[in-house]
Structure formats: structure tokens, C-alpha cells
Amino acid sequence: LGPKYVGLWDFKSRTDEELSFRAGDVFHVARKEEQWWWATLLDEAGGAVAQGYVPHNYLAERE
């Protein structure tokens, strides 16, 4: 699936296409579209919880 990303700060969605998340949440990014990335929010087991657009500057690649 490629690298995983972690949320740096809490983010509250403003549209139906955006995905709310908390700092520390883990994502798989499917598409990078300039300022907004289409991402899947993952649970602790790595299963998909939700999908939506997230601001790229709120995520960091997980080491």
C-alpha cells in the first residue's frame, strides 16, 4: 500500500468530501492533489475506517 502517514494536528472537516481526524491518527494516502490528499483513515489493526480529503500539511510520513 505504500507509506503510511500520521496526523500532526486535529482537523475538522468543512465539507462532505473532507475527513475529520485527530492528531496521531494513521492514514494511507491514495492520491496527492496539490493542497488536498485523498486518504483512508486506518484503525489500529490497519483496517479502513473512512475516506476523504485531508490537508497535506496536516500529515507527516510515518517512519
Rank of each mutant, 00 (worst) to 15 (best):
D43Q: 04
T15G: 13
P55G: 02
F21Q: 00
R14L: 11
K32G: 04
Q35G: 13
V49H: 04
R22W: 07
D10Y: 07
A30R: 08
A50T: 07
A50S: 09
Q35N: 14
F11G: 03
D43G: 05
L8R: 07
E44L: 09
W38A: 00
L8K: 09
A39Y: 03
E18Q: 15
F21V: 04
E63W: 11
F27P: 01
A48S: 10
G46R: 03
D43M: 03
G7R: 00
V29C: 04
D25M: 06
S13P: 05
W36V: 08
E17L: 14
A39V: 15
L8A: 03
T15N: 13
V49Q: 07
H28P: 01
W9K: 12
Y53V: 03
L59T: 03
V26M: 13
L19S: 00
T40E: 08
W9H: 10
V26P: 02
N57D: 13
A45G: 11
V29L: 02
K32H: 06
H28C: 10
K32I: 06
A50W: 06
G24R: 02
Y5H: 03
S20R: 02
R22H: 11
E63A: 12
E44G: 10
G7P: 04
R31A: 07
L41C: 03
T15L: 07
G46N: 06
A23C: 08
V29S: 01
V29T: 01
R31E: 06
F11E: 04
L59H: 02
D43L: 05
H56R: 13
W38T: 01
E17P: 05
F21W: 02
F11Q: 03
L42R: 00
V6K: 05
L41D: 00
V54M: 02
K4T: 14
Y53G: 01
G47H: 15
H56Q: 11
E34K: 11
R62W: 15
G52A: 02
L59G: 01
S13R: 08
A39S: 04
L41H: 01
K4V: 15
E34Q: 11
T15H: 10
S20T: 09
W38R: 02
P3T: 12
E17I: 13
K4N: 09
S13G: 15
A60Y: 09
K12G: 06
P3N: 10
V54L: 03
V26E: 10
Q51D: 08
S13I: 06
G2N: 12
E18D: 05
W9E: 07
A45F: 14
E44F: 09
A23T: 06
G46T: 04
K32P: 05
H56W: 13
S13W: 05
E34A: 12
D10I: 07
L42V: 07
H28K: 07
E18K: 05
A23Y: 05
S20W: 05
H56N: 10
A23S: 07
R62S: 14
Y5W: 09
V54T: 00
Y5D: 00
E44Y: 09
E33Y: 11
W36A: 07
P55L: 06
R14H: 10
G24C: 08
K4R: 11
W9F: 13
Y5Q: 01
N57G: 09
S13N: 07
A50E: 06
L19G: 00
Y58V: 05
R22A: 09
S13Q: 08
S20K: 03
G52T: 00
E63P: 13
W36K: 10
V6L: 06
R22E: 07
G47I: 13
R62P: 10
A60V: 15
Y58H: 05
R14C: 14
R22V: 10
S20L: 04
G47S: 12
K12I: 15
D10T: 05
E63Y: 12
E33H: 10
W36Y: 11
L42G: 00
L19F: 04
W9M: 12
L8W: 06
D16N: 12
D10P: 08
L19N: 00
T40L: 11
W37D: 01
V29I: 09
R14Q: 13
R31L: 07
K12W: 11
T40N: 04
K4L: 15
L1H: 13
Y5L: 02
L41P: 00
E17N: 14
L41T: 01
W38V: 06
G24Y: 02
A23R: 11
E63F: 11
W37R: 00
A39R: 01
E61K: 11
E63D: 14
L59P: 04
W9D: 05
E61G: 06
R31F: 13
Q35D: 13
P55A: 03
G47C: 14
G2L: 14
D25G: 05
E34T: 10
S13F: 03
V29M: 01
R62N: 11
E18W: 13
L19P: 01
A23I: 06
A45R: 13
S13V: 03
N57R: 07
G46I: 08
E61C: 08
G46F: 07
A23D: 02
A23N: 04
F11S: 02
D43E: 00
W36E: 02
A45M: 13
Y53D: 01
H28G: 03
E61L: 15
H28L: 15
D25F: 06
L8F: 03
G24S: 02
R62C: 15
F21E: 00
L8V: 08
R62L: 15
E34P: 11
F21G: 02
V6I: 12
E17D: 14
L8H: 04
E18C: 12
W38K: 00
A60K: 13
Y58T: 04
G2E: 15
E63M: 12
Q51W: 09
L59A: 01
A45S: 13
E17T: 12
D43S: 07
E63C: 13
L42A: 01
L1I: 12
K12V: 15
H28R: 09
V54P: 01
L42T: 03
V26C: 08
N57V: 06
S13M: 05
V54Q: 01
D43T: 05
P55N: 05
A45K: 13
A23E: 07
V6T: 06
R31W: 14
T40P: 01
Y53H: 02
E33N: 08
T15I: 08
W37E: 00
L1Y: 12
W37H: 00
Y58Q: 04
L8C: 13
L1Q: 13
V29P: 01
P55R: 05
F27Y: 02
G7H: 04
R22D: 05
E33P: 02
A60R: 12
E18F: 12
G2A: 14
Q51Y: 08
E61D: 08
G46W: 05
G24D: 03
G24L: 03
G7F: 07
P55K: 05
A48V: 13
P55F: 05
A50N: 07
G24P: 01
W37N: 00
A23G: 04
